[in-house]
Write a protein that binds this DNA or RNA. Structure first.
Lengths: 150, 150
DNA sequence: TTATCTGCAAAGCCTTTGCACTTAG
DNA sequence: CTAAGTGCAAAGGCTTTGCAGATAA
């Protein structure tokens, strides 16, 4: 099933109306690259329809997230990012603290260990956030060159 | 070595002056319980010395964090928390999505797996953030009782 | 003395909200 | 028709900043 249909069903199920603007926001979100901030989405939406207000983008982003089409991620740099989460495998991220470049990562070992920890504390695990911070290969090389040069 | 001494050394090393107010903020932070927000710290600091301004608390908190005495953690509820990070073992957190209760967790398996993943992507791992979200035993029981009652 | 620190209030940033107008059903 | 959706601008929460007066070295 496609994400637009899923969103439509989600809205129906909640007794929320569909609207042209909500669909526009969803379309732009689905077309654009992953890991977008609300602000960036607003700008892209405005290219399609400048009449859509910031509030609608934020409100729709919330709905899209509830519908399981977007997932909020935070790298800790002040603004929340949203990535596609419909028909995508779960993953986490590793971020370069120097240049901001990041990669998606995933590990069955970690996931099952997380489950075990939650169980040990009597929790039912629902979800998790994990972000690794380090220095990427490119920045590492730059750093080494600096150290080695006179 | 004690945290106050370490802070003093840290400031000296950076050529930053020590001051009564900075020391007051550090003292209050060291005395208070873990996982405090900046706002909560401001209130506690005001009990000791009402003349200390918000800005100084924020500025000092930044220094304390740089010095490795505090560590910033985010549960994703809007404000950053700070916990003691001097002479403490590394740990992460599991948070109840219903009541907000949380526990500290740690796992060597996860840590070493994180290292492996970072290496696989050519990163040098510096640190990580991990928060598990779930339902705690108390809230689970409440939920079950609700379902079972007429 | 003089560079740094600090309180205050203002501003910044991201996000949410109140309200009158618009639109879907 | 009428309840829900929307733009606008204002406000909210948290944090940072500019500047004149205070303070450490």
């Amino acid at each position: 099933m496609d994400a637009r249909q899923h969103f439509s069903d989600f809205l129906n199920g909640k007794g929320i109306r569909r609207s042209t603007r909500r669909n526009d926001v969803l379309d732009v979100f689905l077309t654009c690259e992953y890991h977008i901030t609300a602000n960036q989405l607003v700008e892209l939406v405005h290219k399609k329809n400048p009449k859509i207000g910031i509030a609608t983008v934020y409100r729709t982003l919330k709905l899209i997230t509830e519908a399981g089409i977007a997932r909020a991620i935070e790298f800790g740099d002040g603004s929340v990012r949203y990535e596609h989460d419909f028909g995508h495998e779960h993953h986490d991220h590793i971020v370069c603290v120097r240049c901001g470049m990041f990669r998606e990562i995933s590990s069955d070992e970690i996931e099952s260990e997380q489950d075990a920890i939650a169980r040990k504390h009597g929790f039912v695990l629902l979800r998790h956030k994990m972000v690794l911070y380090g220095v990427c290969p490119v920045c590492r090389r730059k750093q080494e060159n600096q150290v080695n040069s006179p």
